[in-house]
Simulated scan of single mutants.
Amino acid sequence: MATAFKALLERRITVDASPSVVWDIIRDIRRMPEWSPQVISVKLREPDGDIRLGSTFTNLNHQGELEWITHGEMVRYEPEKEVAFRIAENHTIWSFSISPHGAATVLTQRRETPDGISQFSLELTESHLGGQQAFTEILEAGMEQTLTAIKACAES
């Protein structure tokens, strides 16, 4: 029997850069492989198009030697505030939001599950990714790495 998943994963970091600098980094989902330890590549369905609400893309992800493809769609895109995408295979919504904090910016990454996680994804997590608790710990550590890498990029 699968263990329960966490409905919300959330991490935040303060970045010593303006919201516009941070926004210029996070708004392009194609840059995710630069920061995320799980994402190998992101390809937009319309490669020369601007990223906007409704944009669709394909991710190649990995955990150890295991690789898998997911399909995403931008479900929120508010310039200098938030970018969020829904993953078709597991129903999760991943987002980055920014808010000014004096001369700095607070950057928050979330994984939400407003419709739960697909049974298919839950079963694969149990059978191939070490189970819900172990995979959640990997995701949370990956979120920390992702935010730290975005911070370093924005502050350089």
Rank of each mutant, 00 (worst) to 15 (best):
I25L: 09
W35Y: 13
E67H: 13
W35A: 04
A141F: 02
I40P: 00
G72H: 12
V42M: 12
I25R: 10
S127P: 02
A149F: 01
V22W: 07
W94A: 00
I98G: 06
E155A: 03
L60C: 00
L107H: 06
L122G: 01
S156L: 08
V83M: 08
T125L: 02
V83G: 02
Q132Y: 02
S121M: 10
K43F: 03
S118H: 03
R45A: 10
D16V: 09
L44G: 08
E137M: 12
F57Q: 07
A2Y: 06
E82F: 04
I13L: 09
I138V: 14
L124Q: 14
D50Y: 05
S55G: 05
R86H: 05
S99P: 09
S118C: 04
T56L: 12
G54L: 14
R76L: 07
S156M: 05
E46A: 13
S127W: 03
M143Y: 00
S95N: 10
I117L: 15
K151P: 00
F96H: 08
L107W: 06
R11Y: 01
D16M: 11
P19V: 00
N59R: 08
S99W: 02
A17M: 10
D48L: 10
A4W: 00
V15R: 11
N90R: 04
L60A: 05
A152C: 04
P100F: 00
F96V: 01
R52P: 02
L9I: 11
E155P: 07
V39C: 11
T108P: 14
R76S: 12
A17N: 11
R31Q: 14
L122Y: 01
L8V: 15
E144F: 01
H101C: 07
G49C: 04
E34W: 10
E126T: 09
V39R: 01
S97F: 08
N90H: 03
R52I: 07
A103I: 15
Q119E: 14
P114L: 04
L66C: 03
E140Q: 15
T58K: 13
R110H: 04
I98D: 12
Q63T: 11
H62R: 15
V106I: 12
M32E: 11
K6M: 08
R30C: 08
E46M: 08
E80D: 15
S20L: 11
W94E: 10
G72N: 15
T92K: 01
L129Q: 09
V42I: 15
S156A: 11
P100R: 07
G72A: 13
E34G: 04
I150Q: 00
D48Y: 04
M32T: 09
V75K: 04
A152H: 11
E137K: 10
L107E: 03
M1A: 14
E144G: 03
W94G: 02
T125E: 07
I69H: 09
T58S: 10
F5C: 05
